[in-house]
């Protein structure tokens, strides 16, 4: 890699460093905005799938099967084009206001639905990992249903679910790259712009891959630290 290539990464009007950094910001913003949807949605889906009531269980199971099975890219297209068309059609009945689902919002909804579906599996596994005796003990102490959930089940659930959820965060971070196909100016899209202007595809896509890898590594280190922290008191198990 010679100097002239590296100088393409300079910041300022001549280099592409600042553009790529702005792309990293969008990539992280999208992942961070989507993660809570996956987390909360996954927990609610898991509750629904464990429910006694078929009216909750069946739709939740269908939802998870669909969004776990579909390619993320097609989910993204369906949300991006479909939701825009649907909202416009609905609103055109009442007013002339134009509504467009931005690529960021479409990415959040599509990737959120996918993450929530996978997270519900993680939570189901974690529920199964909590020993029955814990619930029985809590009942024996006379704790209410709510207190049982909050004080006994949730803390253990989070510890058991953490490794799986950490994995999903890494998957989500990588999946954000797909949203570049519907014109979100994330890291990958901006890399493409740089490639178009400089005709140096190998260099720029390689740099993009290294940046994604760095984000994955930093995430892994943080997740490893969190796991160690939440497993205190469980040494040797």
């Amino acid at each position: 890699m010679d100097d002239s290539l590296l100088s393409l990464l300079r910041f300022g009007p001549q280099g592409w460093g600042d553009e790529l950094l702005a792309g990293v910001r969008i990539t992280l913003l999208l992942a961070l905005a989507t993660a809570p949807i996956g987390l909360v949605g996954g927990f609610l889906l898991a509750l629904a799938r464990r429910s006694q009531s078929a009216r909750l269980r069946v739709p939740a199971t269908i939802f998870t099967t669909v969004f776990k099975g579909l390619p993320e890219l097609i989910t993204l297209f369906i949300v991006y084009y479909g939701l825009s068309m649907l909202l416009s059609a609905l609103l055109s009945l009442v007013s002339d206001v134009y509504v467009e689902v931005s690529s960021f919002l479409a990415g959040m909804i599509a990737l959120g639905a996918v993450s929530a579906s996978f997270a519900s599996e993680v939570f189901l596994g974690a529920f199964a990992g909590i020993p029955k005796g814990q619930i029985e003990g809590a009942e024996a102490l006379g704790l209410s249903r709510y207190a049982r959930m909050r004080k006994v089940v949730l803390p253990q659930l989070l510890r058991l679910a953490l490794p799986g959820l950490g994995n999903l965060w890494l998957v989500l971070l990588k999946d954000t790259a797909l949203v570049s196909v519907i014109a979100l100016p994330d890291l990958l899209r901006r890399t493409f712009v740089a490639v178009g202007a400089t005709k140096e595809p190998f260099f720029f896509f390689f740099v993009a891959i290294l940046i994604y890898f760095a984000m994955s590594l930093v995430s892994s280190v943080i997740l490893g630290f969190l796991e160690a922290r939440y497993s205190r008191g469980y040494a040797g198990r």
């Binding site: 913003l29 905005a33 206001v97 509504v99 931005s102 919002l105 959040m108």
Partner: peptide
């Protein structure tokens, strides 16, 4: 900027 990025764009005729 965050809201602008995620919210739907709307413009009146």
């Amino acid at each position: 900027t965050f809201l602008a990025a995620i919210l739907v764009a709307a413009a009146a005729l």
